[in-house]
Amino acid sequence: MGALEIIKSDYIRELVAKGERGDGRKDMDVRDIKITTGTIDHAEGSAQVDLGNTRVLAGAKIMVDDVHSDTPDQGNIVVSAELLPLASAEYESGPPSPEAIELARVVDRGIRAGNCIKLEDLFLGEGKAWTVYVDVYVLNYDGNLFDASTLAAMSAIMNARIPEYKDGVANYENRKEPLNITNVVSSATFAKIGNSILLDPSGEEESAMDARLTIATDGNVIRAMQKGLSGSFTIEEVDKLAGIALEKHQFYLKHIEKAKR
Protein backbone atom coordinates (compact mmCIF):
# COMPACT_ATOMS: atom_id res chain seq x y z
CA MET A 1 0.00 0.00 0.00
CA GLY A 2 1.22 3.46 -0.82
CA ALA A 3 1.27 6.26 1.75
CA LEU A 4 -1.97 7.78 0.43
CA GLU A 5 -3.86 4.50 0.70
CA ILE A 6 -2.64 4.00 4.26
CA ILE A 7 -3.87 7.47 5.30
CA LYS A 8 -7.20 6.80 3.57
CA SER A 9 -7.52 3.41 5.23
CA ASP A 10 -6.78 4.88 8.68
CA TYR A 11 -9.44 7.51 8.07
CA ILE A 12 -12.02 4.87 7.13
CA ARG A 13 -11.19 2.82 10.22
CA GLU A 14 -11.71 5.86 12.44
CA LEU A 15 -14.97 6.69 10.74
CA VAL A 16 -16.29 3.15 11.03
CA ALA A 17 -15.27 2.97 14.69
CA LYS A 18 -17.55 5.97 15.25
CA GLY A 19 -20.39 4.11 13.56
CA GLU A 20 -20.27 6.13 10.34
CA ARG A 21 -19.64 5.39 6.68
CA GLY A 22 -17.94 7.63 4.10
CA ASP A 23 -21.09 7.91 1.97
CA GLY A 24 -23.50 8.39 4.87
CA ARG A 25 -25.00 4.88 4.71
CA LYS A 26 -26.07 2.89 7.77
CA ASP A 27 -24.11 -0.30 8.49
CA MET A 28 -26.52 -2.66 6.73
CA ASP A 29 -27.48 -0.34 3.84
CA VAL A 30 -26.78 -1.38 0.26
CA ARG A 31 -25.76 1.19 -2.35
CA ASP A 32 -28.05 1.99 -5.29
CA ILE A 33 -28.52 -0.97 -7.59
CA LYS A 34 -29.21 -0.68 -11.29
CA ILE A 35 -29.56 -3.78 -13.44
CA THR A 36 -29.83 -3.58 -17.23
CA THR A 37 -30.43 -6.82 -19.11
CA GLY A 38 -29.98 -7.77 -22.76
CA THR A 39 -27.26 -5.23 -23.51
CA ILE A 40 -25.15 -7.68 -25.55
CA ASP A 41 -27.16 -9.06 -28.46
CA HIS A 42 -24.65 -11.71 -29.47
CA ALA A 43 -24.74 -13.31 -26.05
CA GLU A 44 -27.71 -15.56 -25.29
CA GLY A 45 -28.15 -13.54 -22.13
CA SER A 46 -26.50 -10.51 -20.60
CA ALA A 47 -26.82 -8.12 -17.71
CA GLN A 48 -24.94 -5.08 -16.52
CA VAL A 49 -25.05 -4.29 -12.85
CA ASP A 50 -24.19 -0.99 -11.23
CA LEU A 51 -23.78 -1.28 -7.48
CA GLY A 52 -22.81 2.23 -6.47
CA ASN A 53 -19.77 2.89 -8.62
CA THR A 54 -18.98 -0.78 -9.09
CA ARG A 55 -19.94 -1.92 -12.56
CA VAL A 56 -19.89 -5.48 -13.82
CA LEU A 57 -21.16 -6.99 -17.05
CA ALA A 58 -22.09 -10.65 -17.30
CA GLY A 59 -22.59 -12.44 -20.59
CA ALA A 60 -24.08 -15.93 -20.91
CA LYS A 61 -23.23 -18.07 -23.94
CA ILE A 62 -25.05 -21.37 -24.39
CA MET A 63 -23.01 -23.90 -26.34
CA VAL A 64 -23.44 -27.53 -27.39
CA ASP A 65 -20.88 -29.77 -25.69
CA ASP A 66 -20.27 -33.47 -25.25
CA VAL A 67 -21.51 -34.69 -21.88
CA HIS A 68 -19.00 -35.66 -19.20
CA SER A 69 -18.62 -39.38 -18.71
CA ASP A 70 -19.36 -39.11 -14.99
CA THR A 71 -22.55 -37.07 -15.56
CA PRO A 72 -23.96 -38.56 -18.81
CA ASP A 73 -27.44 -37.06 -18.34
CA GLN A 74 -26.47 -33.48 -17.52
CA GLY A 75 -25.27 -30.24 -18.99
CA ASN A 76 -23.10 -27.79 -17.12
CA ILE A 77 -22.75 -24.20 -16.02
CA VAL A 78 -19.32 -22.57 -15.94
CA VAL A 79 -18.71 -19.19 -14.34
CA SER A 80 -15.54 -17.21 -14.99
CA ALA A 81 -14.52 -13.73 -13.93
CA GLU A 82 -12.07 -11.21 -15.28
CA LEU A 83 -10.76 -8.23 -13.36
CA LEU A 84 -10.12 -6.08 -16.41
CA PRO A 85 -7.15 -3.69 -16.33
CA LEU A 86 -9.50 -0.87 -17.33
CA ALA A 87 -11.50 -1.36 -14.13
CA SER A 88 -8.85 -0.25 -11.65
CA ALA A 89 -5.27 0.98 -11.53
CA GLU A 90 -4.57 -2.06 -9.33
CA TYR A 91 -5.53 -4.66 -11.95
CA GLU A 92 -3.00 -6.01 -14.39
CA SER A 93 -3.42 -7.98 -17.57
CA GLY A 94 -2.27 -11.56 -17.57
CA PRO A 95 -3.56 -14.91 -16.38
CA PRO A 96 -6.45 -14.80 -13.88
CA SER A 97 -5.32 -13.75 -10.42
CA PRO A 98 -6.27 -15.76 -7.31
CA GLU A 99 -8.75 -12.94 -6.57
CA ALA A 100 -10.50 -13.38 -9.95
CA ILE A 101 -10.59 -17.15 -9.52
CA GLU A 102 -12.04 -16.84 -6.03
CA LEU A 103 -14.70 -14.39 -7.27
CA ALA A 104 -15.75 -16.71 -10.10
CA ARG A 105 -15.84 -19.79 -7.91
CA VAL A 106 -17.91 -18.12 -5.18
CA VAL A 107 -20.47 -16.85 -7.71
CA ASP A 108 -20.51 -20.29 -9.36
CA ARG A 109 -21.00 -22.02 -6.01
CA GLY A 110 -24.04 -19.92 -5.08
CA ILE A 111 -25.81 -20.51 -8.39
CA ARG A 112 -24.86 -24.18 -8.52
CA ALA A 113 -25.72 -24.97 -4.90
CA GLY A 114 -28.95 -23.00 -5.27
CA ASN A 115 -29.99 -25.29 -8.16
CA CYS A 116 -30.90 -22.18 -10.13
CA ILE A 117 -30.64 -24.19 -13.32
CA LYS A 118 -31.28 -27.92 -13.14
CA LEU A 119 -28.35 -29.42 -14.97
CA GLU A 120 -30.56 -32.32 -16.15
CA ASP A 121 -32.66 -29.75 -18.03
CA LEU A 122 -29.62 -28.96 -20.18
CA PHE A 123 -29.33 -32.52 -21.52
CA LEU A 124 -29.96 -32.73 -25.27
CA GLY A 125 -29.70 -36.48 -25.82
CA GLU A 126 -27.20 -38.64 -27.69
CA GLY A 127 -24.25 -37.62 -25.57
CA LYS A 128 -24.84 -33.89 -26.08
CA ALA A 129 -25.84 -31.20 -23.60
CA TRP A 130 -25.83 -27.43 -23.24
CA THR A 131 -23.07 -25.76 -21.32
CA VAL A 132 -24.00 -22.33 -20.01
CA TYR A 133 -20.85 -20.20 -19.93
CA VAL A 134 -21.25 -17.14 -17.73
CA ASP A 135 -18.40 -14.66 -18.02
CA VAL A 136 -18.34 -11.85 -15.50
CA TYR A 137 -16.44 -8.77 -16.68
CA VAL A 138 -15.52 -6.27 -14.01
CA LEU A 139 -15.63 -2.87 -15.71
CA ASN A 140 -15.23 -0.54 -12.75
CA TYR A 141 -14.11 -1.44 -9.26
CA ASP A 142 -15.55 0.25 -6.22
CA GLY A 143 -15.86 -2.62 -3.79
CA ASN A 144 -18.13 -5.64 -3.33
CA LEU A 145 -17.54 -7.47 -6.59
CA PHE A 146 -19.09 -10.61 -5.11
CA ASP A 147 -22.64 -9.30 -4.77
CA ALA A 148 -22.52 -7.30 -8.00
CA SER A 149 -21.25 -10.36 -9.89
CA THR A 150 -23.87 -12.69 -8.42
CA LEU A 151 -26.61 -10.22 -9.38
CA ALA A 152 -25.15 -9.93 -12.89
CA ALA A 153 -24.65 -13.68 -13.43
CA MET A 154 -28.12 -14.46 -12.07
CA SER A 155 -29.72 -11.75 -14.22
CA ALA A 156 -27.80 -12.87 -17.32
CA ILE A 157 -28.98 -16.47 -17.09
CA MET A 158 -32.54 -15.29 -16.44
CA ASN A 159 -32.23 -13.10 -19.52
CA ALA A 160 -30.83 -15.91 -21.69
CA ARG A 161 -32.70 -17.53 -24.58
CA ILE A 162 -31.74 -21.00 -25.74
CA PRO A 163 -30.82 -21.41 -29.43
CA GLU A 164 -32.89 -23.72 -31.57
CA TYR A 165 -31.30 -27.18 -31.61
CA LYS A 166 -31.56 -29.67 -34.43
CA ASP A 167 -29.42 -32.67 -35.33
CA GLY A 168 -26.56 -31.75 -33.06
CA VAL A 169 -26.38 -28.15 -34.29
CA ALA A 170 -27.46 -24.96 -32.52
CA ASN A 171 -29.03 -22.21 -34.56
CA TYR A 172 -28.05 -18.90 -32.98
CA GLU A 173 -30.28 -16.94 -35.40
CA ASN A 174 -33.27 -18.40 -33.67
CA ARG A 175 -33.33 -18.06 -29.90
CA LYS A 176 -36.67 -18.18 -28.16
CA GLU A 177 -37.01 -20.34 -25.07
CA PRO A 178 -35.67 -19.04 -21.80
CA LEU A 179 -33.62 -21.30 -19.55
CA ASN A 180 -35.71 -23.07 -16.93
CA ILE A 181 -34.79 -21.05 -13.84
CA THR A 182 -35.83 -23.06 -10.79
CA ASN A 183 -34.40 -20.90 -8.03
CA VAL A 184 -32.92 -17.43 -7.58
CA VAL A 185 -29.97 -16.70 -5.31
CA SER A 186 -28.48 -13.45 -4.17
CA SER A 187 -25.44 -12.84 -2.05
CA ALA A 188 -24.74 -10.44 0.78
CA THR A 189 -21.13 -9.52 1.43
CA PHE A 190 -20.03 -8.11 4.77
CA ALA A 191 -16.78 -6.35 5.61
CA LYS A 192 -15.35 -6.47 9.10
CA ILE A 193 -13.36 -3.36 9.96
CA GLY A 194 -12.06 -3.38 13.51
CA ASN A 195 -15.06 -4.53 15.53
CA SER A 196 -17.64 -3.15 13.10
CA ILE A 197 -19.38 -5.05 10.33
CA LEU A 198 -20.75 -3.38 7.20
CA LEU A 199 -22.88 -4.73 4.37
CA ASP A 200 -21.89 -3.96 0.77
CA PRO A 201 -18.42 -2.44 1.36
CA SER A 202 -17.25 0.26 -1.03
CA GLY A 203 -13.76 0.24 -2.51
CA GLU A 204 -12.32 2.45 0.20
CA GLU A 205 -14.02 0.37 2.89
CA GLU A 206 -12.52 -2.77 1.36
CA SER A 207 -9.07 -1.19 1.51
CA ALA A 208 -9.53 -0.94 5.29
CA MET A 209 -11.28 -4.24 5.94
CA ASP A 210 -9.77 -7.03 8.03
CA ALA A 211 -12.10 -9.81 6.91
CA ARG A 212 -14.87 -10.40 4.42
CA LEU A 213 -17.82 -12.77 4.48
CA THR A 214 -20.07 -13.54 1.53
CA ILE A 215 -23.32 -15.40 2.18
CA ALA A 216 -25.46 -16.52 -0.77
CA THR A 217 -29.06 -17.48 -0.03
CA ASP A 218 -32.36 -18.08 -1.77
CA GLY A 219 -34.26 -16.45 1.08
CA ASN A 220 -35.04 -19.76 2.79
CA VAL A 221 -31.74 -21.59 2.87
CA ILE A 222 -28.08 -20.58 2.94
CA ARG A 223 -26.55 -21.83 -0.30
CA ALA A 224 -22.90 -20.79 -0.20
CA MET A 225 -20.48 -18.96 2.02
CA GLN A 226 -16.96 -17.69 1.65
CA LYS A 227 -14.83 -15.96 4.22
CA GLY A 228 -11.89 -13.97 2.88
CA LEU A 229 -8.78 -12.18 4.15
CA SER A 230 -6.76 -12.68 7.29
CA GLY A 231 -9.20 -11.28 9.86
CA SER A 232 -11.72 -13.40 11.72
CA PHE A 233 -15.41 -13.72 12.55
CA THR A 234 -16.99 -15.22 15.64
CA ILE A 235 -19.72 -17.84 15.55
CA GLU A 236 -22.17 -15.27 16.92
CA GLU A 237 -21.33 -12.88 14.10
CA VAL A 238 -21.75 -15.53 11.40
CA ASP A 239 -25.05 -16.55 12.97
CA LYS A 240 -26.32 -12.97 12.91
CA LEU A 241 -25.04 -12.20 9.40
CA ALA A 242 -26.67 -15.35 8.02
CA GLY A 243 -29.98 -14.01 9.32
CA ILE A 244 -29.40 -10.64 7.66
CA ALA A 245 -28.41 -12.27 4.35
CA LEU A 246 -31.58 -14.39 4.38
CA GLU A 247 -33.69 -11.29 5.05
CA LYS A 248 -31.96 -9.14 2.42
CA HIS A 249 -32.73 -11.65 -0.32
CA GLN A 250 -36.19 -10.14 -0.93
CA PHE A 251 -34.57 -6.78 -1.56
CA TYR A 252 -32.14 -8.18 -4.14
CA LEU A 253 -34.84 -10.34 -5.69
CA LYS A 254 -36.98 -7.24 -6.28
CA HIS A 255 -34.14 -5.67 -8.31
CA ILE A 256 -33.55 -8.90 -10.27
CA GLU A 257 -37.25 -9.29 -11.06
CA LYS A 258 -37.59 -5.66 -12.11
CA ALA A 259 -34.77 -6.00 -14.64
CA LYS A 260 -36.03 -9.29 -16.03
CA ARG A 261 -37.25 -9.37 -19.60
Binding site: R112, A113, L213, R223, A224, T234, I235
Partner: peptide, 17 residues
Protein backbone atom coordinates in the same frame (compact mmCIF):
# COMPACT_ATOMS: atom_id res chain seq x y z
CA UNK B 1 -12.83 -19.68 18.91
CA UNK B 2 -12.40 -17.21 16.04
CA UNK B 3 -13.30 -18.43 12.56
CA UNK B 4 -10.37 -18.02 10.16
CA UNK B 5 -11.74 -20.01 7.24
CA UNK B 6 -15.37 -20.50 6.35
CA UNK B 7 -16.65 -21.86 3.09
CA UNK B 8 -19.93 -23.56 2.36
CA UNK B 9 -21.99 -24.87 -0.47
CA UNK B 10 -25.19 -26.83 -0.65
CA UNK B 11 -28.05 -25.82 1.57
CA UNK B 12 -28.28 -25.08 5.29
CA UNK B 13 -30.97 -23.45 7.35
CA UNK B 14 -29.86 -20.91 9.91
CA UNK B 15 -30.31 -23.54 12.65
CA UNK B 16 -28.28 -26.16 10.77
CA UNK B 17 -25.52 -23.59 10.22
Amino acid sequence: GEILLLQMDGGLTKEQL
